[in-house]
Nucleic acid binder design. Structure first.
Lengths: 333, 333
DNA sequence: CTGTTAGCGCGTTCAT
DNA sequence: ATGAACGCGCTAACAG
């Protein structure tokens, strides 16, 4: 692999001149410029960003850590991230943490060593360890989708609470009184907020809350399936699924026990279910602006990276759209 | 950010000693080791891989370029890649090319500058340019899923031709004579092979081929939808969808025109359709071993990276599983 | 067992 | 308009 020195020698100039030509910095005469350019081309010269990063303290790499890239919600977020990053000359390293704290910490460690310019983190637990490690190294970080208690950090997320409240209102308006909530882990803010908002809506409507209707599990199909089996014993007339994968599990079980949606039971969920064969969009959902979350977070991160002055931490809350489709109806009498 | 020098000073040793402790290389006495370790911890020292990469010519970063991360087939491949890579101490940069040659070339250029240790490429076109640019820099590369004519390069893919042939045989055995093929772009090997294999199966069964039943489009839902609308005029009794997204488009249109599957028309496709609400797996499919493709390609790539000697290029072809479900039946008389 | 020297490839600083 | 010297942080090669 040719180095800047090789090009310089071939063009009969000093390395610094080559640097000036390639970076369009400083004055270079028209003819030496051409000599350098053709020398570079002949040698298939590819500048070494490692070397320049070492000097400039800029790698132009962002790291994005999320739970699971196989959920289309996250790939859409990732798209937003990638598009903004590329546009501003940054590459993105994407990492799956599988909701495991050790994996997250391992990645953070590796990526800090690689001197990525910033982190986009969907935190796996309520633990603040990873975030603090990053902040201690003064590397900019933006937290996505989930909020973390007791830490000062930029955050971009959908209006989880508000949208859950609206979904609950929709069900209440239809006449539902026994609303089940099947959600993710207790230590993830979105799971908790979804439960709290539904409960609040019930309270505001002066309705009692049956604890047997509230189940915490995982953001996964199997978990949704299992929770549904359990919650049916408490005889809900409607189910709020904590995310799209849980909703899929709900659907699977309901089909097995031959309960029709919405005739026998209503279902709503967060984040759209993957496109698929055999069904038009059918579920009433709270659609978080996935792409926007990625875009917005990345813009904020890049602002942090580019501006030295530390403006106060921001907490951006993006609006969530409620789409009412045909999975909800008045409860059977 | 602390440097190795800072740690050395604090521990009262030379930088190289710190290096030896942290990398477990060479002899270090128990007590200096401890002094160094506690100094490193106190200073929150994070080694700079840029500097060490500059010397070692190893970044431990792989680049993976694919068309679209929102297709679950590719995320599964990417998972295979990531798992193997991490296990061997490598990180992965994932990039979406959107099937666009310029994006691919731009990425290749950026990533070469970053001195990634190797490339995993799902090529967007039949153009060999990107591959040659990479090979000219002596950077190892493995091509995934699609074959490229006239280039010597390692390749890992599913047995496209064989599986398409088997799907066709299945349809023929059911009694279908008018089999439509709706596939991807002409310049992608998988699209072409799927068509060729079906035609071959027809020929082998001594059946005529109606060109009106063969349509090239894009690997996308809208394209599948549009092609279906067009191909129905040629009155097929079965449709072979070139990939999962095309199949979704097929399903959408068939529903609109009230054609039942499999009673009125049979459908088969490649790669499983995303998990979804409301339906059990239903389509008869050729399931490519997505995770395995990623795994295998990465193992091959890492072998290339680690072994200096250049063994001849390999072309790995992985078996494809045919799963017969309920979207296929004998044609209506 | 530990330290010195030197250099990876580039760009900033200061001369010419 | 061009170049020389130096240093970013780390480690291989060679002492001691």
């Amino acid at each position: 692999m040719a180095t800047i020195q090789d090009v310089a020698t071939k063009a009969g100039v000093a390395p610094i001149t080559v640097s000036r030509v390639l970076n369009n910095s400083g004055y270079v005469s028209q003819q030496t410029r051409q000599r350098v350019e053709s020398a570079a081309k002949e040698l298939d010269y590819v500048p070494n960003s490692l070397a320049s990063s070492l000097r400039s303290n800029r790698t132009h790499i962002l790291a994005m850590l999320l739970a699971d890239i196989s959920n289309p919600f996250w790939t859409t977020v990732a798209r937003g991230v990638e598009d903004v990053a590329n546009q501003q000359g940054f590459s993105v390293i994407l990492c799956n943490t599988d909701e495991k704290e050790e994996k997250q910490e391992e990645y953070v460690s590796v990526l800090l060593r690689k001197r990525v310019d910033g982190f986009l983190l969907v935190p796996t637990t309520a633990s603040t360890e990873s975030i603090q490690v990053i902040q201690r190294q003064q590397v900019p970080i933006v937290v996505l989708d989930r909020s973390i208690p007791d830490v000062s950090v930029d955050t971009v997320r959908g209006d989880t609470y508000g949208s859950a409240y609206k979904l609950a209102q929709h069900l209440l308006a239809l006449g539902h009184r026994r609303i089940a909530v099947l959600t993710g882990p207790r230590y993830i803010s979105t799971s908790v907020e979804r439960v709290e908002a539904v409960c609040q809506a019930m309270s505001d409507a002066e309705l009692p809350i049956d604890p047997a209707l509230i189940l915490y599990g995982e953001y996964a199909v199997e978990s949704g399936y299992a929770m549904t089996a359990r919650v049916l014993q408490a005889q809900p007339t409607a189910i709020v699924a904590g995310n799209n994968f849980i909703a899929v599990g709900v659907g699977r079980l309901l089909r097995e026990v031959l309960l029709r949606v919405p005739e026998d039971i209503s279902v709503v969920c967060f984040d759209d279910v993957p496109i698929s064969w055999a069904s038009e969009p059918f579920l009433t959902v709270a659609v978080q602006p996935a792409y926007e979350i990625g875009r917005c977070a990345t813009e904020l991160l890049l602002k942090r990276i580019n501006c030295a002055e530390s403006t106060p931490y921001q907490e951006v809350k993006l609006p969530v759209e409620i789409i009412i489709r045909s999975s909800t109806a008045a409860p059977a009498v």
